[in-house]
Amino acid sequence: MAEKLEDLNLPLTVVTRIVKESLPDGVAISKEARTGLAKAASVFVLYVTSAATNIVKNKKRKALTGQDVLDAMRDIEFDRFVEPLGVAFEQYKQIASARKSGSGKKKEEGDDVEIIEDD
């Protein structure tokens, strides 16, 4: 599990990059605002996770699915994310199935777990 406490926070630099990309060029962001947004993002991960696991529990299932995450959005009243997330989910599934059917590119399989930490 998490060995250091920092492991439970999302990397500040990456969150800042997302923030900068969503704002017009040349916007300055205070240090406190950056750490605040990173903290908020980390807490959001847990918030969504617990909403999704609640759905799993209520349905008396065990494994968490992508659909549970999508359904959780409505439960926590983040309906505005349902559409963009649904689109991303469809794309993800398409790419995932294309990867499976493309038997020539077996080397790519099992890649989803190994993601480079760029921090």
Binding site: A52, T65, G66, V69, L70, L85, Y92, A96, V113
Partner: peptide, 8 residues
């Protein structure tokens, strides 16, 4: 799993 992880 990879699917819920991607979505979260």
């Amino acid at each position: 799993g990879p699917e819920p992880l991607y979505l979260v």
